[in-house]
Design a protein around this nucleic acid. Sequence first.
RNA 1: GGGGCUAUAGCUCAGGGGGAGAGCGCUUGACUCACAUUCAAGAGGCCACUGGUUCGAUCCCAGUUAGCCCCACCA
Length: 880
Amino acid sequence: MTDKNLAPVYDPSEVEERLYQEWLEKDYFQAPRDLKRKTFNIVIPPPNVTGSLHMGHALDNTIQDILIRRKRMEGFDTLWLPGTDHAGIATQIKVEEHLAADGLTRYDLGREKFIERVWQWKDEYHERIIGQLYKLGVSCDWSRERFTMDEGCSDAVRQVFVALYHKGLIYRGNYIINWCPRCHTALSDIEVEHEDAEGTLTYIRYPLVDGEGHVVVATTRPETMLGDTAVAVHPQDSRYQALIGKEVLLPLMNRKIPIIADDYVDPEFGSGAVKITPAHDPNDFAIGERHQLPSVVVIAEDGTMTQEAGKYAGLDRTEARKQVVDDLEAEGVLLQIEKHQHAVGHCQRCHTVIEPLLSKQWFVSMKPLAEPAIQQVKNGEIRFVPERFTKVYLNWVENIRDWCISRQIWWGHRIPAWYCECGKTIVAREEPQTCPHCGGQALKQEEDVLDTWFSSALWPFSTLGWPEETADLEHYYPTDVLVTGYDIIYFWVARMIFMGLEFMHKKPFHTVYIHGLVRDAQGRKMSKSLGNGIDPLEIIEQYGADTLRFTLITGQAPGHDQRFRQESVDNSRNFANKIWNASRFVLMNLGDTTAAELELDSLTDADRWLLHRYNQTVREVNRLMDTYELGEAARTIYEFLWSDFCDWYIELAKIPLYDAQTEAEKQTVRSVLTYVLDRTLRLLHPFMPFITEEIWQKIPHSGKTIMLASWPEYDPALEFSAAHERMATVMEVTRTIRYLRSEVQLPPGRKAQVILNVDSGASAQALAAGEAMLKKLANLEEMTVVRELPEQPQQALTAVVGDIEIYLPLKGLVDIEQEIKRLQKELKKLESEVARAEGKLNNQGFLAKAPQQVIAEERAKAENYRLRRDKVRERIISLR
RNA sequence: GGGGCUAUAGCUCAGGGGGAGAGCGCUUGACUCACAUUCAAGAGGCCACUGGUUCGAUCCCAGUUAGCCCCACCA
């Protein structure tokens, strides 16, 4: 027998570190690759190696660990594959910031040295992140850990790139892209965050080249007028019919540009005439294509004006804007400036205002890849939980546009394309030695790297060894559930589905579980700039991982954001302590027994009641977990453990444990306590892995670890409805007597007498069986059950439970007037209940259409309320 | 301009076609031999508003109001 003397307060810090090491040493997390067993797999959303884990990660990983631990206990061959993400731009920015502290830029180091520095950074932060995951208690298979830039994943990236290129789905070309002047790179559309901003709409007069008159255009970005190559109007706009085909003279630049007609123009907006700058606006670019307009690039990649901008060359774009406006005013062509609300794009990583630029970049053609990914979701092969996210996904995928994948940074997968002097481009998995077209050897590899999400998209299969045909890939692909926040459905989830279908010809997972954000106590997003972030590690150090996990999971409803509040942490901590102390009680009362076999024959009503409740809890928890309602599942266990097991059963168990005549009676209770505690710990283990293991090891058990103990299932042998009913009566009477006692402030030290007058044999039986319990729990000295009461005691408090009249004779303590008042209040309540039930029963529609069971229940209720009403009424009369 | 979510006890939130739930807070009592990180008892809600469907709506549907979020190239 292990040590039974537990400290009265649970101390997680002592337990968690030790248990996690033990689990690691014994390889409990390792997936066995047992071909005979069914698999259950999850790939971790790889955390970025930029910093440390936040509450969102803690929630995300807690959810995954819960799913994984349950399936492992259910006997599945379970793999939770961990790893980290190189996070291209984000990590590069961090390292650059670090260098900046020493007054250095990445150019000072050069590409090779800089990347070395980033690898060092990666190593350092990788260690930190893994350490944090350890502390959370996640049961990942660390022997299979991956990194998006490790050799295998990099190979997968090249393989995919080459395949898509040869299929014509990757191409390179000149298009308007989102350019971040700060990060100095192109971005994809979804890396741009739009924010409404108060801007201005500037009206400028462009004079006609021939003859009198002018055209007025309106723009939010006057500085781009330097690059205008046309003015567009709507073809049907009567105001401008005569002007179409003529030319205007572009102010400041004195360039002749044509007036063209295009349907894109909204005659209602501004002046109805639009200046066209193909090099700096996506719409203008499209119009430029349609009308073969030249593009004049006036803003450079660093955000300054180019030589094409004439005298403004070299100015920063914001400075240029001011000067252009001033000069326009000086020339007398500035008509007016009005305020204007519009959305301005910002870089997701550094929040700099995005510049739409004409640039040569690599793209993935998305529509062909999206098609099957739409079908898989539409036909239910891939399911979102909660379901409404299906729409969010489809809405994006059905309107998908090509993906700009090249980034002008250094940290990432370098694009496997080489340019030859002969002008040809070679795309290959391995570096070519000579040009296959001209045989030349002067090949230069593309400088750009890939969008970090390119490698993420391959994660479910690249981590299992693809493109090699590994045993893991064969056995573990596809995975089962993907757990993530709604913020990366587009970035990651959609693209994984695309790539999984394209390269594995199988969906990467069948279920996408979407959770919400963890916000601060005021409901604000946790962010560094606000300084309102709560570090999960601090909570773990102070309260333990179990407490943090329980707080996060109970605070969570599928797909909804939650607030992280101290009260909730306290509550979870208290719960852990409650479990600890309940277990202390069990351990202290185990006697010499080492095993607990339930002997169903010798059970009392209390035992049967607990087993029944336990069994219901198991069924409910399984149902909830099957539908991913993990917060509800956790609350259900909480409720059972605290209310049923602790508040009622442990108190009831004390009776035989302390007073029983025979050892056999004690033994029965011990076995029930042990059995239910054991199984409830198993049920709770996925949620609170540490404390459950720690206690489980101390109570009688078979097996090495609770991690591999069998998962509790509903057991028909534990259905005890009759006993459950009887106990419900006993409990209700108990509560009522306690209530009466507190009504007259009867001191706890004073034992009371009670007379119970019953109408039915069933009640008499329940009370007889529950006598000892009632005496203890309601603090009674004497309890008398009668079938008929010759004379009602006057100096007594009264209440009615079902057909049971409860009399609490208290000479000298009962204020008759007060008691009548209280009973009248009770009578009023009962009368309204009777009225409600009878109202229903008198409704012909109800009787005709409601289900029989509901009608029967309603009849029983009505009967019960009438009975109680009459008894209370009688009592009032007798007191008068 | 589209799409979505939310409105339940003082606070934070679960729930769900047939008499409203939790935690915290509040009131009253108790250091009772597992636990005061506790126990017992209690107060507190026309479940946002208006219609509809139904025998029956807090729950389903429509609309209204308020708040939040996502997507979108009207200069």
